[in-house]
Amino acid sequence: MTRESTSTPLDLDRLADYLRQHIPEFRGPLKAQKFAGGQSNPTFLLDTPERRYVLRRQPPGQLLKSAHAVDREYRVLRALADTGVPVARAWHLCEDREVIGSMFYVMSYEDGRIFWNPALPEVESGTRRDYYASIITTLAALHDVDVDAVGLGDYGRAGNYFQRQIGLWTRQYRAAETEPIAAMEALIAWLPAHCPADTQRVSLVHGDFRIDNLIFAHDAPRVRAILDWELSTLGNPLADLAYFCMCLRLPAKGNITGLRGQDRSALGIPEEEDMVARYCALRGLPAIENWNFYLAFSFFRLASIAQGVKARALQGNASNANAHEVGGMVEPLAKLAVELID
């Protein structure tokens, strides 16, 4: 991981004593730095003389019942350990909130590269197609995991995934609504009326499958680990595929960087139809019908999330320093979705 980090106090002596008892071969002394960024579950790099670890915790204080479920993230990492899907090794889950003030888990530190811009300016143009091929191959492998065989058959509700998700994010949007947005109203009316039949086999869905939630090897266009499983559940795998493909339509400048208006051919980045075709070939799927629905839903969901950030920013309790900028994305995101359904 190469995310910029900042020092953050923890009770390192108490934490080191605890980890020494629960992680084989753990040896102190211990240093810690908090990774910068907008994670709702604060994440820390732990340094010891022999090894690096990553600690991911719930925020301290009173939490909503189902929010910040780091125990679910830990469960997913454990379940995927021997599947071939690239994830960090889950070392230990601590449910004793007395140790550092909240539930946390510790996983391996995966050294590699994180890219924040899907144009991949850091790599040679001739290799960018290979990076995207690795991303799609990784996503297909994730969705091919037999959830029952790895013990995740009860990780979420089966069936009617998009109907339930549309209802969920509509409620979330209404709860955080600050002013009328015509494009959001259009989506709230259109999406449930055009929801396709849920014919895909239920898969483990990551929920936030973006390029900056992937760690790549230093020396090859290969995904080393998928990060941030906070929104994972069981559902329709096309949600992840469409969510990733949003980057092709998002503006090149903004809080979430995209490729809209970029010459993807000159950049060496495959077209959307090529990525979708590769995914379908890897999974043995027929051509995807109603593709614009899946894209429109992805924009609507992201807009609803951004509206929640905006509401918290206006209330003065947003955790992300860029909250007002994120909040400004709501209407533009909704308008991009409406372009797909008009």
Rank of each mutant, 00 (worst) to 15 (best):
E4P: 01
E4A: 13
D11K: 01
L15P: 01
F26E: 06
F26I: 10
G28W: 08
G28C: 09
A36F: 00
Q39N: 15
G61T: 01
S66C: 00
Y74R: 07
L77M: 13
A88K: 05
L93Y: 14
R97S: 06
V99F: 04
M103T: 15
Y105D: 07
D111Y: 08
P118I: 12
S125E: 12
T127A: 04
D130P: 04
Y131P: 00
T137S: 11
T137L: 03
T137I: 04
D144C: 07
D154W: 08
F162Q: 11
L168P: 05
T170R: 15
R171Q: 14
E179D: 07
A182Y: 06
A182P: 11
A186E: 15
L191D: 11
H194Q: 10
V205F: 03
F209C: 05
F209T: 08
P221K: 01
A225F: 00
W229L: 06
A242G: 11
R249A: 06
R249E: 10
G254S: 03
R260A: 14
L267N: 12
E271N: 13
E271T: 13
E272V: 01
V276R: 10
F293V: 14
F293I: 12
F299T: 10
F299E: 14
S304K: 14
V309T: 06
K310T: 07
L314K: 07
G316N: 05
V326N: 06
V330D: 06
E331N: 09
P332A: 13
I341K: 08
